[in-house]
Computed example of a mutant assay.
Amino acid sequence: MIYFDNSATTSMAPEAMKTYTDVATKIMGNPSSLHQLGTVATRLLDASRRQISELLGVQPHEIYFTSGGTEGDNWVLKGVAFEKKPFGNHIIVSSVEHPAIKNAAEWLRTQGFDVDYAPVDAKGFVKVKELKALVRDETILVSCMAVNNEVGAIQPLKEIADFLEDKPTISFHVDAVQGLGKIAVEDFMLPRVDFVTLSAHKFHGPRGVGILVIKAGKRLTPLLHGGGQENNKRSTTENLPAIAATAKAMRLTLTDDSLKRKKVGKMKAVIYNALKAYDKVILFSEMEHFAPNILTFGIRGVRGEVVVHGFENHEIYISTTSACSSKKNATAGTLVAMNVPNKYATSAVRISLDHTNNMSEVEQFLTVFKILYSEFDKIAR
């Protein structure tokens, strides 16, 4: 089996799995309990929070644990909107955001908020000039992802941050779910960024746990009320085994991360250069200013799901656009925003690599691609 769908989810690192199992079986206390077992759990929770904060370059009290990227994104959009409603009702998000952002923004419209979408260019990069023009006195939030999940475009966060530097009343949120391990931490953990969303299963941690960085002094209306966990901002008993495993997975991911990115980039380059030689292949991702792990392409006249299943028959696993939309047969939202014609957008498939992949798998992929391309060529005529 060859797994090239790492942007959908990664395999859990064995070391992180061991941490999860050890904590789940040996530390049974609730961190909110006053007895000794609760104290042991609290110490581990604090240690995990501290380790993650050090890796991200923030303070422990700025780390909040969630159930994943979707919750974190929803919490920021809705939490900022209701916290700042007395001061403004205008939100700006990029036109290529994950559905967790877009759908939350559209729900906020029904609650009386105004939403504008910053456009992107033909390669999927946010047009900062047009984003700047959307800002007005009532603007309370700008949200932009770090790495696009569909084509891998690395967004111009520094340029946006520089523009917002003298606008302290506007909160700046970065969805970095696809960023950790794919770009340098400092490229999305910018000083001007107020909120950052992460999800553990994208960097070899467990599913169902995420991280939201809330910079000191920044306020969010809670989504969950109850026992007052997470500094009274997210009430629910902490998933301690998953949190401890997330801390381990993040440390492993960021160890020698630049070398891992180079390795992945070399594999992508081999596939990219090979696919360029085929007349009917359309490349939606590029090398420069794109994440090293994501390569999205299409074969003219062949729907993406046909290509996915063709590779699956050879036990090679890729996906159409994103995992959140692939089963719905939805056209890639990013490609639509890039003004890619529908007949080409519906052909899009995504390869997403990882440092656990290797060049022999790349060679096998290209061998199978050559076979499938010949078969598809006959069908598409």
Rank of each mutant, 00 (worst) to 15 (best):
V213F: 08
L180Q: 04
E186L: 08
I170Q: 12
D175K: 09
K182V: 12
F203V: 08
F203G: 03
D194L: 03
P206S: 08
V209Y: 01
L212C: 02
G208N: 11
G210S: 05
M189T: 13
T169V: 05
L180M: 13
V174E: 12
A216W: 00
L224Y: 12
E186Y: 11
I183C: 04
V209M: 04
L223M: 15
F188V: 03
G205Y: 00
K182Q: 14
F203C: 05
R192M: 11
V213R: 07
F188I: 03
A176I: 11
V193F: 07
A184G: 14
I183H: 01
L220M: 10
G179M: 02
K215Q: 10
V174Y: 10
H173W: 07
L220K: 10
L190T: 12
L212R: 04
S199D: 09
K218T: 03
L223P: 04
I214S: 01
L198F: 15
A184M: 13
A176T: 13
V209T: 11
E165M: 13
V174W: 11
L223H: 10
G205A: 00
G210Y: 02
I183R: 01
G205I: 01
G217I: 06
P222K: 10
V193H: 07
G179K: 04
K167Q: 14
V196W: 02
I214E: 00
L212K: 04
L190W: 14
G181E: 02
I211F: 06
V196T: 15
G179P: 02
A216D: 01
P168T: 09
K167V: 06
G179Y: 01
D166T: 14
G217K: 06
V185H: 01
I183D: 00
T197P: 06
F188S: 04
P222T: 11
T221V: 13
L223Y: 10
V193Q: 07
V177L: 08
M189Y: 08
I214H: 00
F188Q: 03
R207V: 04
P168V: 05
T197C: 12
A216V: 01
P222G: 07
P168F: 06
D187G: 09
G181R: 03
V174R: 12
T197H: 06
D166Y: 08
K218V: 04
K167F: 07
H204W: 03
F188N: 03
L224N: 10
A176Q: 11
D175R: 10
H201E: 13
V185I: 11
G181C: 09
A184K: 15
Q178N: 15
D194G: 05
L198N: 05
V193K: 05
T169N: 12
S199A: 15
